[in-house]
Design a protein around this nucleic acid. Structure first.
Lengths: 201, 201, 201, 201
DNA sequence: GATGAATGAGGCTTCATTCAT
DNA sequence: GATGAATGAAGCCTCATTCAT
């Protein structure tokens, strides 16, 4: 699809209404966000908002699905991009996750934080996509262990831990923070490699 | 205070009303939890609940403060317990955080998740305690780097990353899961050591 | 106008939009019927519906007036058709009312049920037409009493009772019910004659 | 239960809130009655109303069930009161229905008019009670036909017609109308007897 | 006539909270 | 501490209606 741009996520593809809702969700949480607040943030009246989305839950669903789909596309592209070298695959996935959680900070934050507010069907799809991603990480780690570049006894736990680490970036990253995205990526690559016992440089 | 029991957190010191509220907060979030739901979970009438706490926010505050206080006590005890060896300090703090986020799963989850629902003053205290904890981690890492047992260029980032990893345990740990707390502690100790470039065994 | 066809009411003269609205009104009531539901039933967009009728109330008015006008035309034709014999006049009016409430079931049901939802002016016209009809019945009954074929002390009450009986047919009649219209007419003619003390055969 | 008072229904047993709601339902219909209007009529705030009944539908249900239960009790008492004479049974049931539809005018009007607004389960119970009543009428008519005091070929249709006639009283009766309840009863008894071909005096 | 977008008002219901008993 | 009753404010959502295209 878009195999090369996972390092530079490009402009947010979300329609303006969802982008406004996202901001409100990120600040107040799903239940703390009133439909009126969302409408105001979107520059719409309340019925105007309902013209675009049939319910508050539908807004959350749209946000979550768009986010997970884009994230999975990026992760897949990043992995494909790495060819068959396990260490490169691992690095690419970690870098991709880190970058995504900075470029789509609110999206990723809401998607991971509001899982409990999603209707079962939406949550199920969400969990499935998250698991797919984690499995990609795990496969890379396993391959690395087999080929001797990683030293890691519990690959599934490691994959979850690495993914958690990347997700947690979204909860503190600020565009105007002291570190550039590239610096953050580098440091987290270091942490992640350490977690899987990568051979030291 | 209680310098030896940080490995076995003991029974939840929370009064029953708060424990009930905590469960509801964990499942539905602060804004998704109604006073009536909390009262029901506590086996109280609504005015009965108000007899104990003057507002919903006061309940959240009580939960959050009790949690943070206990966590900081434990962490301090764990660090003190380790004496002056940097690697042991680091290990103890990580183990303590991991154990706390399993033994007080809901407490820690709510405390970290509902920061945005706290009144500023409560949140400020919360952040301060969290930072204190992270600083203890960072100090241990720095000492380890200086003494040559760790290899880590960005100690503050590492401290945050390690703390995040421990916090994230609360979002997936189940008492009846496949791994025992001891196993989980061991594995996360491994990940954490890797993140700070601990000398390999 | 159409003096002979009152026994076989012919196809519904209502334009399709009103016919759709009628169905919705019959099922949900005026206040329970939304403009959108009506538009959907009519296969129109909402503004498309407003292109035909300026308001929901105008739709009700159009339905009610068309119904009452047609019903009064039929009743008049039926009465005229009977010539001067009181018993035949009575029979014809009853038969006409019964047939109309079967052939125009929804129309008659809505017209009688939603009187309270009509604007005063529409309701006034509606009541006047209903009273005219009832007066025709009453006149026939009175003439029958005078000529000795009926035995009825309270002609106005009898007229109202007979009319009510015919109206009530609309609330249970189904095209696919066990009785044919002809059978229903015969039976209700029997009831109506009994109510006015018609001489037994 | 109360075998003697079916002729003098006594004071309305409905709690004040339901009585207020009933009045509003009678005037505007279920869908035309807003919860605010009902609360105002009951002298309550809106949440105050919800303290007593959990939903608008629950109010309708309570009204309908109370009405049907009382009506069926009365009808049963009236029938029992008549002993085994078919004509007396028939008369008593008709008189009882007529009196009930005057004494509980709004109740009966709403119960019969708002069937379409009832949830399926409530409606089912309602229809069952109505049918039970109609069956009592039909049984009396059949017994009368067999004993030769009535002359009626279609007893089920006759029962429905007689019941409809009594129900229709509720749609025009006014306490301050020109006729007394006793007069109305007498006249409708006459109509009803005529419908079943009762032997003339 | 259709479409898409919009809106003030109001729909039903629940919120956190209070108070008399 | 419990109960029953109450309430202003606000929750999500839908109403009838309009208008530019």
């Amino acid at each position: 699809m878009a195999p090369k741009d996972w390092r530079a996520p490009g402009p947010d593809p979300l329609p303006p209404v969802l982008r406004a809702a996202l901001e409100v969700f990120a600040r107040h949480g799903y239940h703390g966000a009133s439909i009126r607040t969302i409408a105001d943030a979107a520059g719409l009246s309340v019925p105007g908002l309902y013209h675009h989305y049939p319910s508050k839950q539908a807004i959350l669903r749209a946000v979550a699905e768009a986010t997970m789909t884009e994230m999975l596309e990026h992760t897949t592209a990043a992995a494909d991009d790495a060819g068959s070298d396990p260490a490169a695959r691992f690095d690419n996935i970690v870098e991709c996750l880190a970058r995504f959680h900075m470029a789509r900070r609110d999206h990723a934050f809401v998607a991971s934080t509001e899982m409990r507010s999603m209707e079962p069907e939406v949550r199920a799809r969400h969990v499935a996509q998250r698991d797919t991603q984690q499995k990609m990480l795990e496969d890379a780690i396993e391959a690395g262990v087999e080929s001797g570049v990683f030293e890691c006894a519990h690959t599934a736990d490691a994959a979850r831990a690495v993914a958690s680490l990347c997700v947690s970036i979204a909860s503190w990253y600020r565009t105007d923070g002291p570190l550039s995205p590239d610096e953050i990526v580098q440091r987290h690559l270091g942490f992640a490699r350490g977690m899987v016992g990568a051979a030291r440089a």
